[in-house]
Simulated scan of single mutants.
Amino acid sequence: MPAPRQGRQLLAAVRAVVLATVALGLVYPLLMTGIAQVIAPSKADGSLVTSADGTVVGSSLLGQGFLDGSGDPLPEYFQSRPSAGDWDGAASGGSNLGPNSTELADTIAERRTEVAAFNGVPEADVPADAVTASASGLDPDISPEYAAIQVQRVATARGVSADEVAALVDTATAGRDLGVIGAPSVDVLELNLALDEQLG
């Protein structure tokens, strides 16, 4: 093949790479971001959640821990699912331990004992999502069953009735999508914000 022809092909290939890089790496993302900002600005900005005073306290899409400075769970708040990455979005992921892992079995047993003791319930009443992390480690929701075993503990810590706390749990509970898809869930951040705003 003559050298000039090779040069033309190389130049065409470089142009194609540059064009694809500009179109797919710059123009397309900017276009999609602009459309998202117009159609759904809240979601485009990360589905941020603010408290009553306007402070950003998290995202409706990401779970977080409700812990004190020592890393211990705060009794006045509902607790999220465990997280293999400590609810760090940059470290999203599971433990990668399989069902035959003795380490996983031991971790679950330890968590079950801790959750039962913290909430003052029998270990048999501790649901699966209280002791297992989600695949992402960032699931913002818990099951109504996990919320239910936390009601009395939260009510006692806040000096209010369990019925008042249970009513807020009901408000923060979402049903199945279209009535049949998925499972009912409780938004932990929404629930804890409601606790602060309504029950102090």
Rank of each mutant, 00 (worst) to 15 (best):
M1I: 07
P2D: 14
P2V: 08
A3P: 00
P4T: 02
R5I: 12
G7C: 09
Q9E: 12
L10M: 14
L11K: 10
L11Q: 13
L11P: 08
A12M: 13
A12C: 13
V14Y: 06
R15I: 15
R15Q: 13
A16F: 08
A16R: 04
L19F: 12
L19V: 15
A23I: 13
Y28D: 05
L31F: 08
L31P: 01
M32P: 03
T33P: 02
T33Y: 11
Q37H: 13
Q37S: 15
I39N: 04
A40P: 13
P41S: 10
S42E: 15
A44V: 09
D45L: 07
T50P: 08
T50K: 09
S51T: 09
A52S: 11
D53F: 12
G54W: 00
S59L: 12
S60V: 11
L62S: 07
G63A: 08
Q64S: 15
Q64K: 08
F66I: 08
L67G: 05
L67K: 09
G69S: 10
S70W: 11
G71A: 13
D72Y: 11
D72F: 12
Y77K: 06
Y77Q: 00
Y77L: 03
F78E: 03
Q79C: 00
S83Q: 06
G85Y: 01
D86A: 05
A91Q: 15
A91N: 15
G93C: 01
G94A: 07
G94E: 04
L97P: 01
N100H: 03
S101M: 09
L104P: 02
L104K: 05
A105H: 10
A109P: 05
A109V: 00
A109L: 04
A109S: 04
E110N: 06
R111V: 01
R112L: 01
R112Q: 12
E114R: 14
E114F: 06
E114Y: 03
V115Y: 03
A116Q: 06
A116S: 09
A117G: 10
F118M: 07
F118N: 00
E123S: 04
D129V: 01
T132L: 02
A135H: 05
G137L: 04
D139L: 03
D141N: 12
P144R: 01
P144L: 01
P144E: 04
P144C: 02
P144I: 00
E145Y: 08
I149W: 07
Q150D: 05
Q150T: 04
R153Y: 12
R153H: 12
A155V: 04
T156I: 09
R158C: 06
A162V: 04
D163K: 08
E164R: 15
A167N: 03
L168M: 07
L168W: 02
V169L: 09
T171E: 14
T171I: 10
T171N: 04
G175V: 05
G175K: 00
R176L: 10
R176S: 11
R176Y: 08
D177L: 15
G182K: 03
G182C: 14
G182P: 14
S185E: 10
S185G: 13
S185V: 11
S185A: 14
V186T: 08
D187W: 07
V188S: 00
L189G: 12
L193I: 15
A194C: 14
D196H: 06
G200Y: 12
